[in-house]
Design a protein around this nucleic acid. Sequence first.
DNA 1: CTTGACGCAGAACGCATGTTCGAGTATTAT
DNA 2: ATAATACTCGAACATGCGTTCTGCGTCAAG
Lengths: 225, 225
Amino acid sequence: MVRKSKGLGERHKKILAFLKTYQERTGYPPTIREIGEDTGISSTSVVNYYLDQLEKMGRIERQRKISRGVQLAGGSPLGEMFKIPVAGRIVAGEPIPVPASDFSYFDAETSIDIARSLLPSPDKSEGLFALEVDGDSMIDAMVNDGDIVVMKSTGGIQPNNGDMVAVWLPERDETTLKYFYKEKEGYRLQPANPTMEAIHVDKDEALEIKGKVVMVIRQIEKTVI
Amino acid sequence: MVRKSKGLGERHKKILAFLKTYQERTGYPPTIREIGEDTGISSTSVVNYYLDQLEKMGRIERQRKISRGVQLAGGSPLGEMFKIPVAGRIVAGEPIPVPASDFSYFDAETSIDIARSLLPSPDKSEGLFALEVDGDSMIDAMVNDGDIVVMKSTGGIQPNNGDMVAVWLPERDETTLKYFYKEKEGYRLQPANPTMEAIHVDKDEALEIKGKVVMVIRQIEKTVI
DNA sequence: CTTGACGCAGAACGCATGTTCGAGTATTAT
DNA sequence: ATAATACTCGAACATGCGTTCTGCGTCAAG
């Protein structure tokens, strides 16, 4: 049995994950017994034991004496919310930062909250991450500087024709958001703006598809120009 | 005492409102007794009585037998979420539908969920409503067909220079999203796209500013083109 | 007036759920 | 080996909390 490997044991992680999924599914926190059932802990006292530790670590908040008074810390009671880690910035001339597959929002420094109802498929929302757009180079994709693009990791699988994807062209040192079309001699990357020319990529040229764009969010708070 | 005035009595409304604020504040639903305390109902059975009615009306959902199993209906338990009513569609040649000031999301048929953290000022989120963009006529504002624009009602107050606003020009039968600038002889409406020409509106011409754009959301689910 | 639906209160019941205690087993340190 | 610490279990306890029943007053219809 692994003993206090880091600061977060297996059970700690499992409890945190359960807290999140349960809250997302039901809208309210679970009971101690429900946590135990999911985590494979038979005694409520053991669950309480870990809950106390997690509280000391500052990972959860507890309202003593009241039922279902366990919640993830961070001030944000998440209902049908989905926390998407912001992996970094997407710049025209630089590769796209993609989080590792086991990257969970627990580890992310910054994240944005998206309502589940806004996501394409509420059930399979794994592999989602967000990037902030840096610069005006993607206006052809109707994406502005400062916009946030939410992407779904394709996991190496080739996207469907017509998907909007984030691609990295190593030989051109270029990152773009384009509609993806496979053609006989390679690929065609079509801008969202009809007036712009498409990019043709030869079959031999390296092309890394980093993710499928599922959502673009533009917050207009301060004045731009 | 008012008796079954419409379909929603005073207590029904109060309970619904309490359900919402309590959930937003704590992250979990209240108990029956807490509802009673807030609503001024001394007996749990009476609360249960109203809860049953609200459930029959479809306004709330109940998980029987489990504590705090009361939630607002609509499938979306709202935590730090904000429900914004979708007032309608915004089309280039038609006036902008604006909800009445007392329009609450309780009455809205359709609404979208936005995380509080994404909103500009989390405290003062009144007067927010959303519109779905119909048609490609607003690509100059970097807004696509199908996009959702979240607006804040200006309430008759003139917006600041540089704000992105939704304006209705009655004399031209035109609706647009533009950056707003006041000039000596009238107003200048500047498109987001720098390559497009600005519109100049004379001081005499009618101009209705329906709201300030605070957010644009683009969901890419199905294939476009 | 009588009847019945409606709004309300209070109490009792019983299960759900957080809390606490005692004890047993492993792992590590001395 | 012995002690200390971390982890686990089961059970009992106390209370939180949903449910149900009885009763009382009010108002509108018959």
